[in-house]
Amino acid sequence: MSLQQDTELEKHLLSRCYDSQSKIVELLQDRYSVTGSQKSTILFKNIVTDTKKPRSLLHQENTQPTKITQERKKTTRQVLREYISGTLNNQRKLIKKIQSHNRKNTTGHQPFPIHQYLQKYKIPNFDDFFQMNKLWQKYAQDLIFQNGNSMQSLSSILPRLTAADFNGCLLTVLQSRNTNVIGTRGIVVWDAQHSFILVVPRNEDSKEWNEEKSRFSPSEMVGGLKVIPKKHTMFGFDIIDPRNENDCYGFTIVGSRFEIRSVERSGKKFKNHSVDDIL
Protein backbone atom coordinates (compact mmCIF):
# COMPACT_ATOMS: atom_id res chain seq x y z
CA MET A 1 0.00 0.00 0.00
CA SER A 2 2.70 2.49 0.99
CA LEU A 3 4.85 1.32 -1.95
CA GLN A 4 2.10 2.13 -4.36
CA GLN A 5 1.73 5.59 -2.94
CA ASP A 6 5.42 6.32 -3.55
CA THR A 7 5.34 5.08 -7.12
CA GLU A 8 2.25 7.13 -7.86
CA LEU A 9 4.30 10.32 -7.57
CA GLU A 10 7.11 9.04 -9.82
CA LYS A 11 4.57 7.66 -12.25
CA HIS A 12 2.94 11.03 -12.47
CA LEU A 13 6.27 12.71 -13.19
CA LEU A 14 7.46 10.11 -15.65
CA SER A 15 4.24 10.31 -17.66
CA ARG A 16 5.29 13.82 -18.64
CA CYS A 17 8.61 12.56 -20.01
CA TYR A 18 7.86 9.25 -21.66
CA ASP A 19 5.08 8.30 -24.03
CA SER A 20 4.82 4.57 -23.52
CA GLN A 21 3.45 3.09 -20.31
CA SER A 22 5.69 0.05 -20.55
CA LYS A 23 8.79 2.26 -20.40
CA ILE A 24 7.53 3.84 -17.17
CA VAL A 25 6.84 0.46 -15.61
CA GLU A 26 10.29 -0.72 -16.69
CA LEU A 27 12.01 2.28 -15.09
CA LEU A 28 10.11 1.82 -11.82
CA GLN A 29 10.94 -1.86 -11.82
CA ASP A 30 14.65 -1.04 -12.23
CA ARG A 31 14.56 1.37 -9.34
CA TYR A 32 12.48 -0.43 -6.73
CA SER A 33 13.12 -4.08 -7.45
CA VAL A 34 14.46 -6.30 -4.69
CA THR A 35 16.77 -8.44 -6.78
CA GLY A 36 17.28 -6.30 -9.86
CA SER A 37 19.72 -3.51 -10.74
CA GLN A 38 18.29 -1.08 -8.12
CA LYS A 39 19.26 2.10 -9.91
CA SER A 40 19.70 5.10 -7.67
CA THR A 41 18.46 7.61 -10.24
CA ILE A 42 15.48 8.06 -12.51
CA LEU A 43 15.97 9.74 -15.86
CA PHE A 44 13.24 12.35 -16.25
CA LYS A 45 14.26 13.05 -19.84
CA ASN A 46 13.64 10.95 -22.87
CA ILE A 47 17.11 10.20 -24.24
CA VAL A 48 17.36 8.33 -27.50
CA THR A 49 20.71 6.66 -28.02
CA ASP A 50 20.46 4.48 -31.09
CA THR A 51 19.81 6.81 -33.98
CA LYS A 52 22.71 7.64 -36.31
CA LYS A 53 23.28 10.79 -38.29
CA PRO A 54 22.32 10.49 -41.95
CA ARG A 55 25.57 10.58 -43.93
CA SER A 56 26.26 11.85 -47.37
CA LEU A 57 26.16 9.33 -50.17
CA LEU A 58 29.69 10.32 -51.11
CA HIS A 59 31.02 9.70 -47.62
CA GLN A 60 33.64 6.98 -47.44
CA GLU A 61 35.35 5.63 -44.40
CA ASN A 62 39.14 5.74 -44.58
CA THR A 63 39.74 2.20 -43.52
CA GLN A 64 43.45 2.12 -44.35
CA PRO A 65 45.31 5.01 -42.71
CA THR A 66 48.61 5.76 -44.43
CA LYS A 67 51.54 5.40 -42.10
CA ILE A 68 54.55 7.63 -42.56
CA THR A 69 57.53 5.36 -42.28
CA GLN A 70 60.52 6.22 -40.20
CA GLU A 71 62.77 6.49 -43.22
CA ARG A 72 60.66 9.21 -44.74
CA LYS A 73 60.99 11.32 -41.63
CA LYS A 74 64.77 11.22 -41.88
CA THR A 75 65.86 13.62 -44.57
CA THR A 76 69.47 14.15 -45.52
CA ARG A 77 69.65 17.59 -43.95
CA GLN A 78 68.25 16.25 -40.71
CA VAL A 79 70.71 13.38 -40.56
CA LEU A 80 73.61 15.73 -41.25
CA ARG A 81 72.46 18.19 -38.62
CA GLU A 82 72.07 15.42 -36.07
CA TYR A 83 75.52 14.11 -36.89
CA ILE A 84 77.15 17.52 -36.45
CA SER A 85 75.32 18.38 -33.24
CA GLY A 86 75.91 14.89 -31.84
CA THR A 87 79.62 15.14 -32.56
CA LEU A 88 79.83 18.57 -30.96
CA ASN A 89 78.06 17.24 -27.87
CA ASN A 90 80.51 14.35 -27.65
CA GLN A 91 83.40 16.78 -27.91
CA ARG A 92 81.97 18.86 -25.08
CA LYS A 93 81.64 15.79 -22.89
CA LEU A 94 85.21 14.77 -23.57
CA ILE A 95 86.50 18.27 -22.81
CA LYS A 96 84.66 18.18 -19.48
CA LYS A 97 86.24 14.82 -18.71
CA ILE A 98 89.72 16.17 -19.43
CA GLN A 99 89.10 19.23 -17.27
CA SER A 100 87.87 17.05 -14.44
CA HIS A 101 90.93 14.82 -14.78
CA ASN A 102 93.24 17.84 -14.75
CA ARG A 103 91.53 19.15 -11.62
CA LYS A 104 92.02 15.91 -9.73
CA ASN A 105 95.47 15.12 -11.07
CA THR A 106 97.29 18.33 -10.15
CA THR A 107 100.30 16.75 -8.44
CA GLY A 108 100.59 13.52 -10.38
CA HIS A 109 101.95 13.13 -13.87
CA GLN A 110 99.44 10.61 -15.12
CA PRO A 111 98.35 11.64 -18.63
CA PHE A 112 94.76 11.46 -19.75
CA PRO A 113 94.04 8.38 -21.90
CA ILE A 114 92.93 10.46 -24.87
CA HIS A 115 93.06 7.94 -27.70
CA GLN A 116 90.60 5.42 -26.31
CA TYR A 117 88.14 8.20 -25.54
CA LEU A 118 88.48 9.61 -29.05
CA GLN A 119 87.54 6.21 -30.44
CA LYS A 120 84.76 5.73 -27.93
CA TYR A 121 83.10 9.06 -28.69
CA LYS A 122 83.82 8.76 -32.45
CA ILE A 123 85.45 12.16 -32.69
CA PRO A 124 86.38 12.91 -36.33
CA ASN A 125 90.07 12.51 -37.02
CA PHE A 126 91.89 15.10 -39.10
CA ASP A 127 93.94 12.46 -40.91
CA ASP A 128 90.79 10.91 -42.36
CA PHE A 129 90.14 14.08 -44.31
CA PHE A 130 93.63 14.48 -45.73
CA GLN A 131 92.78 12.62 -48.94
CA MET A 132 89.81 14.94 -49.37
CA ASN A 133 92.13 17.92 -49.13
CA LYS A 134 94.35 16.43 -51.84
CA LEU A 135 91.36 16.08 -54.13
CA TRP A 136 90.40 19.66 -53.40
CA GLN A 137 93.87 20.89 -54.30
CA LYS A 138 93.64 19.23 -57.70
CA TYR A 139 90.18 20.68 -58.21
CA ALA A 140 91.36 24.18 -57.30
CA GLN A 141 94.43 23.88 -59.50
CA ASP A 142 92.17 22.99 -62.42
CA LEU A 143 90.16 26.11 -61.77
CA ILE A 144 93.14 28.44 -61.68
CA PHE A 145 95.59 26.77 -64.06
CA GLN A 146 93.04 25.83 -66.70
CA ASN A 147 94.04 24.12 -69.93
CA GLY A 148 97.68 23.59 -69.19
CA ASN A 149 100.30 25.21 -67.07
CA SER A 150 99.69 28.89 -67.59
CA MET A 151 97.97 30.78 -64.83
CA GLN A 152 94.81 32.61 -65.73
CA SER A 153 94.33 36.29 -65.15
CA LEU A 154 92.98 37.46 -61.85
CA SER A 155 89.74 38.75 -63.34
CA SER A 156 88.82 35.26 -64.51
CA ILE A 157 90.14 33.43 -61.44
CA LEU A 158 88.04 35.24 -58.86
CA PRO A 159 84.56 34.54 -60.31
CA ARG A 160 85.49 30.88 -60.51
CA LEU A 161 86.71 30.81 -56.94
CA THR A 162 83.52 32.41 -55.66
CA ALA A 163 81.47 29.72 -57.39
CA ALA A 164 83.86 26.97 -56.33
CA ASP A 165 83.18 24.37 -53.71
CA PHE A 166 85.09 24.75 -50.47
CA ASN A 167 84.42 21.33 -48.96
CA GLY A 168 87.90 19.94 -48.48
CA CYS A 169 89.74 23.26 -48.43
CA LEU A 170 92.31 23.86 -45.68
CA LEU A 171 91.11 27.13 -44.20
CA THR A 172 92.85 29.33 -41.64
CA VAL A 173 91.19 32.07 -39.64
CA LEU A 174 93.34 35.17 -40.17
CA GLN A 175 91.31 37.93 -38.54
CA SER A 176 88.15 37.96 -36.52
CA ARG A 177 86.26 40.00 -33.99
CA ASN A 178 86.11 36.87 -31.89
CA THR A 179 89.76 36.62 -30.90
CA ASN A 180 89.41 33.05 -29.67
CA VAL A 181 89.12 31.62 -33.16
CA ILE A 182 92.10 33.47 -34.66
CA GLY A 183 94.71 31.02 -35.86
CA THR A 184 92.33 28.08 -36.07
CA ARG A 185 92.91 25.99 -39.15
CA GLY A 186 91.18 22.93 -40.47
CA ILE A 187 89.65 21.21 -43.44
CA VAL A 188 86.14 22.33 -44.32
CA VAL A 189 83.71 19.45 -44.01
CA TRP A 190 80.56 21.47 -44.53
CA ASP A 191 80.00 24.93 -45.94
CA ALA A 192 76.92 26.21 -44.17
CA GLN A 193 75.31 29.54 -44.98
CA HIS A 194 76.58 31.41 -41.94
CA SER A 195 79.50 29.27 -40.84
CA PHE A 196 82.28 26.99 -41.92
CA ILE A 197 82.38 23.63 -40.16
CA LEU A 198 86.01 22.56 -40.00
CA VAL A 199 87.71 19.45 -38.74
CA VAL A 200 90.74 20.70 -36.84
CA PRO A 201 93.97 18.82 -36.10
CA ARG A 202 95.05 17.99 -32.58
CA ASN A 203 97.82 19.24 -30.28
CA GLU A 204 100.76 20.86 -32.05
CA ASP A 205 99.10 21.12 -35.46
CA SER A 206 96.02 22.95 -34.21
CA LYS A 207 97.46 26.44 -34.56
CA GLU A 208 100.57 27.89 -36.13
CA TRP A 209 102.00 29.08 -32.83
CA ASN A 210 101.33 25.76 -31.10
CA GLU A 211 104.14 23.98 -32.89
CA GLU A 212 106.66 24.59 -30.10
CA LYS A 213 104.31 24.05 -27.19
CA SER A 214 104.27 21.00 -24.96
CA ARG A 215 101.08 21.57 -22.97
CA PHE A 216 97.76 21.99 -24.72
CA SER A 217 94.30 23.04 -23.69
CA PRO A 218 91.56 20.38 -23.53
CA SER A 219 89.91 21.57 -26.74
CA GLU A 220 93.23 21.37 -28.54
CA MET A 221 93.73 17.86 -27.25
CA VAL A 222 90.34 16.77 -28.56
CA GLY A 223 90.29 18.32 -32.04
CA GLY A 224 87.21 17.24 -33.93
CA LEU A 225 84.71 19.58 -35.52
CA LYS A 226 84.66 23.33 -35.05
CA VAL A 227 81.94 25.71 -36.23
CA ILE A 228 83.47 29.05 -37.22
CA PRO A 229 80.97 31.85 -37.97
CA LYS A 230 81.59 33.65 -41.23
CA LYS A 231 80.47 37.07 -40.08
CA HIS A 232 83.23 39.50 -39.08
CA THR A 233 85.89 36.90 -39.90
CA MET A 234 88.57 36.69 -42.56
CA PHE A 235 89.67 33.28 -43.79
CA GLY A 236 92.73 32.35 -45.82
CA PHE A 237 93.68 29.38 -47.96
CA ASP A 238 96.56 28.42 -50.25
CA ILE A 239 96.58 26.78 -53.66
CA ILE A 240 99.78 24.94 -54.52
CA ASP A 241 101.41 25.77 -57.84
CA PRO A 242 101.43 22.60 -59.98
CA ARG A 243 104.55 23.79 -61.80
CA ASN A 244 106.53 24.18 -58.60
CA GLU A 245 105.43 22.30 -55.50
CA ASN A 246 107.14 24.70 -53.12
CA ASP A 247 105.26 27.73 -54.36
CA CYS A 248 101.67 28.47 -53.49
CA TYR A 249 99.19 31.28 -54.00
CA GLY A 250 97.33 32.62 -51.01
CA PHE A 251 93.75 33.86 -51.15
CA THR A 252 91.52 35.36 -48.50
CA ILE A 253 87.77 35.16 -48.01
CA VAL A 254 85.96 37.98 -46.25
CA GLY A 255 83.36 36.03 -44.35
CA SER A 256 80.80 38.81 -43.99
CA ARG A 257 80.38 38.93 -47.76
CA PHE A 258 80.31 35.15 -48.10
CA GLU A 259 77.11 34.34 -46.22
CA ILE A 260 75.37 32.65 -49.12
CA ARG A 261 74.45 29.02 -49.38
CA SER A 262 77.09 27.05 -51.19
CA VAL A 263 74.60 25.73 -53.75
CA GLU A 264 73.29 29.20 -54.57
CA ARG A 265 76.77 30.60 -55.10
CA SER A 266 77.00 28.83 -58.44
CA GLY A 267 74.75 31.35 -60.13
CA LYS A 268 75.41 34.33 -57.91
CA LYS A 269 77.16 37.54 -58.98
CA PHE A 270 79.06 39.31 -56.24
CA LYS A 271 78.61 43.06 -56.19
CA ASN A 272 80.16 45.90 -54.25
CA HIS A 273 78.76 46.74 -50.86
CA SER A 274 79.60 49.20 -48.14
CA VAL A 275 82.70 48.50 -46.10
CA ASP A 276 81.48 49.67 -42.71
CA ASP A 277 81.14 46.42 -40.81
CA ILE A 278 83.40 44.20 -42.85
CA LEU A 279 85.66 43.05 -40.02
Binding site: R77, V79, L80, Y83, I84, D165
Partner: peptide
Protein backbone atom coordinates in the same frame (compact mmCIF):
# COMPACT_ATOMS: atom_id res chain seq x y z
CA UNK B 1 81.40 6.41 -40.41
CA UNK B 2 81.06 9.76 -42.17
CA UNK B 3 78.00 8.62 -44.08
CA UNK B 4 76.03 11.73 -43.17
CA UNK B 5 78.65 13.94 -44.79
CA UNK B 6 78.64 11.80 -47.92
CA UNK B 7 74.88 12.12 -48.19
CA UNK B 8 75.18 15.87 -47.72
CA UNK B 9 77.65 16.15 -50.59
CA UNK B 10 75.36 14.10 -52.81
CA UNK B 11 72.48 16.38 -51.95
CA UNK B 12 74.61 19.39 -52.86
Amino acid sequence: EYQALSRGYNRN
